[in-house]
Amino acid sequence: MKRLVVIPAALFFVLVLILALVDLAPPAFDLRPLVAENLASSGVAHPVTAVLLNYRAYDTLLEIGVLLLALMAILAVSGSPRTTSNTSLSASDPLLAMLGRIAAPVMVVVAVYLLWAGTSRPGGAFQAGAVLAALAVLLHLTGLLAGWQQPGVRLRWGLAGGFLLFLSVGALLLLVEGELLRYPPAHAGVLILLIESGLTLSLGLILAGLFLFLSHDQGGPR
């Protein structure tokens, strides 16, 4: 039996892992003072945003690329859009629809606030994008927004826009500053806010797309 092998092995592994964690020597190099020292020239006042959009902006650039790739893979494997009847708006509960209509503008305001707050306190593009995506899912579930079938031209630009904007800012800085994504300290704040706005919109659309492209796929086994 597989179970008889896996469970003792898992117990042994977790024991060793916890012993190793408790015993681990302190790191030889501490990044925290470096983050704090350079915060003044990073363009934002919140250390997590500074790490995401300035010190390690390369990771964030690749991350939005990975998300875009995942969405394309989902579009490739999810069912072909055949009938429109499945995705037409279902006649939903009027109470739900009204609550959705009330919640929508509030959530947009929350997303914009989170985006703006990210420069100085917890918040930022990721959280704002997640709120936008949650808004799209909510509108879909209350029957106000139809599931997406095939992305049109505008939606395609919206999905890829954040990545393209990020990449073009990076390429511009490569030409001007001589290094990919090294912001000049005087303009770092504006550039980060520009990139974050693009990221918020694209992240919201991509994360919403993960749900809305999947949920139109209602067809039975063929």
Partner: peptide, 24 residues
């Protein structure tokens, strides 16, 4: 530690994309 927190933040967003791909 803001560095690990930022890395984990990206990780969470990638994890949801991986979950959606797996569901597809």
């Amino acid at each position: 530690d803001p560095v690990t927190q930022a890395m984990v933040l990206t990780g969470i967003v990638v994890a949801v994309a991986a979950t959606a791909l797996a569901l597809a």
